[in-house]
């Protein structure tokens, strides 16, 4: 049996993780479903507009998926409990793939079902306001199977997966602080570049010439396509880097 990847062992690992880790997520989902119930309870007197609930379910779904690694794999790098995960006789690749499958497929499906089911129940219960479940745009299969959406979704989920594997404690807080620091660094960096370009008129002129040469003959659609490609490459790079870091953490993490 290969030490790198074996389908049978991967199946066992996935089953193990479904049995051991997924139940933790159910509690988290109850909290998210609770938001819908709470909003329904607060607005029942005044009726309920169609768009409100739809608009609420989508961000809740994104939050539920984004936070899922922190719930499902909360203790994989805990010094006290993490050893249970580490000594499971499965390869690092199998562990990474199982984690990805869980966070990118199983959890989104569970989150979608839980949130929509809550919405359906509330609609059936009150018959007030058509439930968001009827209007959910992200159920469109053509959109879901678009490679750009898939790459973006992988980057979207692999990033919290990486931070969950990197940070041992206060994981969500540290992730938020990281992004806050990154945001300030970017703002500072962009401000610095813009001010530097503004001071140097020659550079500013050269930049304008470069812009003109590059995009001068392009239509708005061309520019949008260019930006989409850049975004796609950026997402692909983020997905590769975050998955690589997660792989390394699973393989080398000390307990």
């Amino acid at each position: 049996m290969s030490d790198t990847f074996d389908f049978g062992r991967f199946g066992k690992l996935f089953k193990y993780e479904c049995l051991n880790y997924l139940p933790r997520y159910v509690k988290g989902m109850l909290v998210f479903a609770g938001f819908i119930v709470a909003s329904w309870a607060f607005t029942i007197k005044d009726g309920y507009a169609l768009n409100d609930r739809t608009e609420m379910i989508y961000p809740l779904f994104c939050f539920a998926v984004l936070l899922s690694p922190y719930f499902v794999y909360s203790d994989i790098n805990s010094r006290k409990k993490g050893y249970i995960y580490a000594i499971i006789p499965a390869s690092t690749l199998e562990k990474l793939l199982s984690m990805s499958l869980m966070c990118m497929v199983v959890v989104p499906v569970c989150a979608f079902v839980a949130l929509t089911a809550t919405d359906v129940l509330l609609w059936l219960f009150s018959m007030m306001g058509i439930g968001g479940f009827k209007e959910i745009a992200f159920l469109d299969l053509a959109v879901l199977l678009d490679y750009r959406v898939i790459i973006s979704a992988i980057a979207f989920v692999s990033t919290p997966m990486m931070f969950n594997a990197v940070f041992r404690s206060h994981k969500i807080l540290k992730t938020l602080l990281f992004f806050l620091a990154l945001f300030f660094a970017l703002v500072f960096g962009v401000s610095f570049i813009v001010s530097a370009l503004s001071v140097n008129l020659a550079t500013e002129r050269a930049f304008e010439i470069w812009l003109g040469r590059t995009f001068g003959n392009c239509s708005a659609q061309d520019v949008i396509s260019f930006l989409e490609i850049m975004l796609l490459l950026f997402n692909a790079a983020i997905a590769c880097v975050t998955l690589a870091v997660t792989y390394r953490r699973i393989k080398k993490m000390d307990y």
Binding site: R9, K15, L19, N20, Y21, R24, K81
Partner: peptide
């Protein structure tokens, strides 16, 4: 973990 002993054993023992 926060699960029944038999479930934990069922998961671990497969390996």
């Amino acid at each position: 973990p926060d699960i029944a002993i038999k479930n934990y054993a069922a998961g671990v023992s497969q390996f």
